[in-house]
């Protein structure tokens, strides 16, 4: 459904993306891996239309997105759950979820919130609490829940395991899989390559703004180079 081809992006003089090409097919989980500064978040921000590429093409379901605004991407169902969660600290949990549905005009917002609570019951208990006072793990749940409120067709997750205890990471990955099972395609950015390859169908590994390696996650996991560099084996 989504296709990036030869994307180049700059921050001032910094050449952050040097020809990234990738594809996210309908209904799949694709992981985007790589070390610090490899260009993972930049790639998601290209997709969300927060930054404009210097070169390259970007298509969603066959149409170029390069003239769309960030808001239009949200309306197209391409929704990013950003790095470091970025929940609105002074809004309550409920308000954070409501603002996730900001662009929607349909009547199902209430029932979708119920849906979010089945994934993350803890959010329901803390509905009136200010998001800034939630624990890191709870904030991550809220950030994902907030993205779900926008009814994503393609969910872009930027390091959902960042700074979270291993048990909770496992739970969150289970929920990511469930969300995918209901038909939402997912582009998962992770430093935790092991877990990401476990649940994804296909993986891209970025290095210095380029795709250094790609392949079926199953195959990549057994690749010696990958094991040495990214899986710490």
């Amino acid at each position: 459904m989504l296709r990036l081809n030869n994307i180049h992006a700059f921050y001032g003089h910094v050449h952050a993306l040097r020809g990234v090409s990738l594809e996210v097919p309908k209904g799949k989980i694709i992981s985007l891996l790589g070390g610090n500064g490899a260009g993972k978040s930049s790639t998601l921000n290209i997709i969300s239309r927060l930054i404009q590429p210097k070169e390259g093409s970007y298509e969603l379901e066959g149409t170029s997105m390069l003239r769309k605004s960030a808001g239009e991407m949200v309306k197209h169902g391409v929704i990013q759950c950003p790095e470091n969660r970025r929940v609105f600290p002074l809004l309550t949990v409920e308000e954070n979820l409501k603002i996730g549905a900001y662009i929607r005009k349909d009547k199902n917002i209430k029932s979708d919130m119920e849906k979010v609570f089945t994934y993350f019951p803890r959010l329901q208990e803390r509905l009136q609490q200010k998001a800034g006072t939630l624990s890191g793990g709870e904030q991550q749940m809220l950030a994902i829940g907030r993205s779900l409120m926008g009814k994503p067709k393609l969910l872009l997750l930027d390091e959902p395991s960042l700074g979270i205890a291993p048990i909770l990471v496992r739970e969150i990955f289970k929920i990511i899989k469930e969300i995918n099972d209901e038909g939402t395609a997912i582009l998962l950015v992770e430093q935790n390559a092991h877990m990401a390859m476990e649940i994804s169908d296909y993986s891209y590994i970025l290095e210095n703004g380029r795709v250094a390696l790609e392949g079926n996650s199953k195959d990549l996991k057994d690749n010696d180079e990958v094991r040495k560099l990214y899986l710490g084996a």
Partner: peptide, 22 residues
């Protein structure tokens, strides 16, 4: 809803854009 968008924009511009707020 407008008020909510105003409060959100005040707190985090990038996250607000990702919600589709102009």
């Amino acid at each position: 809803k407008v008020g909510l968008a105003m409060r959100a924009s005040a707190q985090d511009i990038k996250a607000s854009q990702l919600m589709g707020i102009k």
